[in-house]
């Protein structure tokens, strides 16, 4: 028998895609959309495994240490692979070296959403209320180290308001508490909030995009409301370092094919996200830039693990 080139027969069994957040958030949502299309193209189902905790670093850690055989993947994202390296002193993986990055999947703005019955209708009123109340105003996020968390810190800095950051294990449980009124406000990535804003279960208060978002023209931007903040997050696909290049290439190609399909484009537009357009090499250098970019930003923001 002649030796087969690495990855020639791959995949022969279902793949596992680790989502480092609880179900119901953007990472989870996007991972499941991707898994369906990618699974069909690869001819093997992709099983999602939610491993939430510690600002998406727990699940990423698991994949960094997994066997690099192409059967274990992670939804890498701006928290686990951009901000957390600057925020978590005890991080045990290197966001660039310990992974074979496959492709950028989606990028999207953050948005502040409010409980239906929360009185302030704009950012100015939120800041005023936060100054008036001794306990300030609480704002939920999907977890420490996310862009949504940094946006909260930057908002507090910009307005001088007394803001109380309440981190969750993911956007799903945080959104539940905002709908229930446990926490009045939430800083969320647009895709996981999109459905709730449309359904009217929460109110879109401010969009952290430079101009009004085409999918949500009714939600004013931060800038329009006098707070000069723009915040985007991104999500992609990564494998453990050492995964055979042939497999990474195939994954990258198929992922980009899924992203290019009309179906995915329509669904992403509905969620308020832009499909990624970076291959393995492009995504790898993108992450290296991001890690370098966030270090000073995190320091300057004074963001800490609450």
């Amino acid at each position: 028998m002649r030796a087969q080139p690495a990855g020639a027969t791959w995949p022969t069994q279902p793949l596992k895609l680790v989502v480092p957040y609880a179900p119901g958030g953007t990472t989870d949502l996007v991972a499941r959309l991707l898994a369906q299309g990618l699974g069909e193209r690869l001819g093997q189902p992709i099983i999602i495994e939610n491993r939430p905790g510690a600002g998406a670093t727990l699940g990423s850690q698991v994949v960094a240490e997994a066997r690099p055989d192409g059967y274990t993947l992670v939804m890498s994202n701006i928290a686990s692979h951009g901000i957390s390296p600057a925020l978590y002193p005890g991080l045990r993986y290197d966001a660039v070296r310990d992974f074979a990055h496959v492709a950028l999947v989606i990028s999207n703005p953050s948005v502040f959403v409010a409980n239906k019955d929360f009185a302030p209708r704009d950012l100015g009123a939120v800041a005023a209320l936060a100054k008036a109340q001794p306990r300030g105003v609480a704002i939920a996020s999907s977890g420490a180290g996310s862009t949504n968390h940094l946006l909260i810190v930057q908002f507090a800095q910009a307005t001088g308001a007394n803001i109380n950051h309440v981190p969750y294990r993911g956007a799903g449980p945080a959104m539940t508490d905002v709908i229930a009124g446990v926490v009045p406000l939430m800083s969320d990535s647009l895709p996981s909030a999109a459905g709730h804003i449309r359904a009217g279960t929460v109110r879109g208060l401010a969009m952290a995009s430079a101009t009004r978002h085409p999918a949500f023209p009714d939600v004013p931007t931060f800038r329009e409301q006098g707070v000069d903040l723009v915040s985007n997050s991104w999500f992609g696909l990564s494998a453990p370092a050492g995964t055979p290049p042939a497999i990474v290439d195939r994954l990258s190609r198929e992922t980009r094919a899924v992203l290019a399909s009309a179906e995915t484009r329509a669904r992403f537009a509905e969620l308020g996200g832009t499909p990624g357009d970076l291959d393995a090499a492009g995504y790898t250098s993108f992450i290296a830039t991001e890690v370098a970019r966030w270090l000073p930003v995190v320091r300057a923001s004074g963001a800490t693990l609450d």
Binding site: P23, G24, R32, L33, I48, N50, H196, T201
Partner: peptide
């Protein structure tokens, strides 16, 4: 079960 639903493209939730 939440996982199985989301794989099917259904987001469990109030709607």
């Amino acid at each position: 079960m939440v996982g199985a639903l989301i794989i099917q493209g259904i987001q469990p939730g109030p709607r």
